[in-house]
Design a protein around this nucleic acid. Structure first.
Length: 483
RNA sequence: GGCGCCGUACCCAAGUGGUAAGGGAGAGGUCUGCAAAACCUUUAUGCGGCGGUUCGAAUCCGCCCGGCGCCUCCA
């Protein structure tokens, strides 16, 4: 079964077939950089990171573009709100571009910690003003937009398919009570392509319609098409951006090019706290920097991947702790396998067939990136491996290598889990003094144990544990690892 | 009000027509000086409720109850 992807446009899973064979153009809505990222961002970008990694694993040459929104994103109503970046810059009394720089760095710092591979291109909206103006010109020339008072709006009535992504129609929305009616727009659903800037507005650029700044939706259209072409394969983003943001992107893009914009729309669900959406407006968000103080970033990554990207994920410390223990279990197995390989025992040992696990893992991932099921396969594999390793014969060296490769391919390369931590301790510390000191203590403790000096041997174990070195006595001797 | 989603064991969470994955926690056991790790056994005749379709439903349909999202910024 080839890769199936749930396409919001079709409201069902579809077989994935890229526009150009072997290549995938993918765009994901990036952050608006006016504050530290929270767990919700983590879910979104971890999910898409795994999607990119899996597509690459399947052999596709992926060009992954994720924007940085640094202008035009307004605080509330699309017409009357304040630019988020400018607002923050006033609070901090710094230039807007300082806000942008600070939180862009903060964003990448957090994403790096989560093991997220950086996008191939991270275009800034402010770096693509010219492209955006060009697009507005096109839309005006085509009669899809109109100018009022030095601002330009998109006329949703000119695009009959408006609403096809989110499943709504303009007339129904018109009766909706929550849309602000009094405005210079012809229709409440029309949206800003270009906004006139008041003189005190710092971020503004000259345009054929006067000095102003681009509307929020515009950047994603012009930047995605600039780097991926007028039609590309995958556009991802948070489900809350399905409407209006993505709907508007489709309208602008398809009207300006006359071509289909995106083939597959992917939307990830959100993180909730006590069943309620985690968001900046509700103020119930947990920043990643705070979360990292309590939890290993990889544990948070694992916690996220244990639920499906299209499901909501309820945040709780209890749930993350449980995930952490599960991850540790997998890490222990990986570690154990690597140590066995290093021991390099000869020939003997049971052969281990990975085919079943490989099948389960890839079938799960092929089914709309079902990471929870893929992880379940890893757990089952882990148990089977541990079981055999505890047997007198152990596992053959050849099989151990295959298992190690399996964990590297699927666990490390695709899911982005147990990278460096599990690879460290005994394995890559040759020549360092620290492991030699630990070995020295272990030798002393061994003697104590042989003489049944339990108080001393337990004390050594406790003291080492306090230093972050965990001992485990087995029948083959004592092994240790860093906690 | 419009559109849509969800409700699975003590907790988290897959499964969307063929007889309930996985993780955590709990209980019992093997190993062990102890601890830890690991392994084994065990914990939902039932998947919010009630009807219906079907040989067969957690999975499809209807109604009801509960929760949530979008429709205004939000990953």
């Amino acid at each position: 079964m080839p890769l199936q992807i749930y396409n919001t446009l079709a409201r069902q899973k579809e077989t994935f077939k890229p526009i150009h064979e072997g290549r995938v153009g993918m765009y994901v809505c990036g952050p608006t950089v006016y504050g530290d990222s929270h767990i919700g961002h983590a879910k979104s970008y971890v999910s898409f990171d795994v999607i990119v990694r899996y597509l690459r694993f399947l052999g596709y040459k992926v060009l992954y573009v994720q924007n940085i929104t640094d202008v035009g994103h307004l605080t509330d109503d699309a017409d009357q709100g304040e630019d988020k970046i400018e607002k923050q810059s006033k609070l901090d009394r710094v230039h807007p571009m300082q806000v942008v720089e600070l939180y862009t760095r903060s964003y990448f710092e957090d994403m790096d910690a989560l093991g997220i591979q950086r996008p191939d291109i991270s275009p800034h909206a402010t770096g693509h003003i010219i492209e955006q103006i060009e697009m507005v010109k096109k839309l005006l020339a085509g009669g899809y937009a109109y100018e009022v008072n030095s601002s330009v709006y998109f006329d949703v009535h000119k695009f009959s398919e408006y609403g096809k992504l989110s499943g709504r129609n303009v007339e129904e929305m018109e009766s909706g009570a929550r849309i602000e009616v009094k405005s210079e727009k012809r229709h409440p659903a029309d949206f800003a392509l270009w906004k006139k800037a008041e003189p005190e507005h710092i971020m503004q650029w000259p345009s054929p319609w006067g000095s102003g700044y681009p509307g929020w939706h515009l950047e994603c259209s012009s930047m995605s098409m600039k780097y991926l072409g007028e039609s590309f394969d995958i556009h991802g983003g948070g489900i809350e951006n399905q409407f209006p943001h993505h709907e508007c992107e489709i309208a602008q893009s398809e009207c300006s090019t006359g071509k289909p914009f995106v083939k597959y729309w992917l939307h990830n669900n959100m993180v909730t706290v006590n069943g309620q959406k985690m968001g900046k407006s509700l103020g119930n968000f947990v920043t990643l920097k705070d979360a990292f103080k309590k939890f290993d970033p990889l544990v948070i990554r694992f916690f996220i991947l244990q639920s499906h990207y299209r499901s909501t994920l309820d945040f709780s410390e209890q749930a993350i702790e449980a995930a952490g223990k599960g991850l540790e279990k997998l890490q222990n197995t990986v570690q154990r396998v690597r140590v066995e390989i290093k021991k390099g025992k000869n020939g003997k040992g049971t052969l281990f067939d990975l085919a079943e696990y490989r099948k389960r893992f890839t079938e799960a991932m092929d089914d709309d990136f079902n990471t929870p099921q893929a992880i379940a396969a890893l757990f089952d594999l882990s148990r089977a491996v541990n079981d055999l390793l505890a047997q007198p014969n152990g596992i053959s060296l050849e099989s151990l290598h295959q298992i190690e490769t399996f964990f590297t391919d699927y666990g490390v390369n695709i899911l982005g889990l147990f990278g460096e931590k599990a690879a460290s301790s005994q394995l890559q510390t040759d020549g360092m003094i620290e492991p030699q000191l630990v070995e020295l203590l272990l030798a002393a403790r061994k003697e104590a144990r042989e003489n049944k000096f339990w108080l001393l041997s337990d004390k050594i174990r406790d003291r080492l544990k306090a230093l972050g070195v965990v001992l485990e006595d087995t029948k083959d001797g004592t092994s240790w690892k860093k906690a």
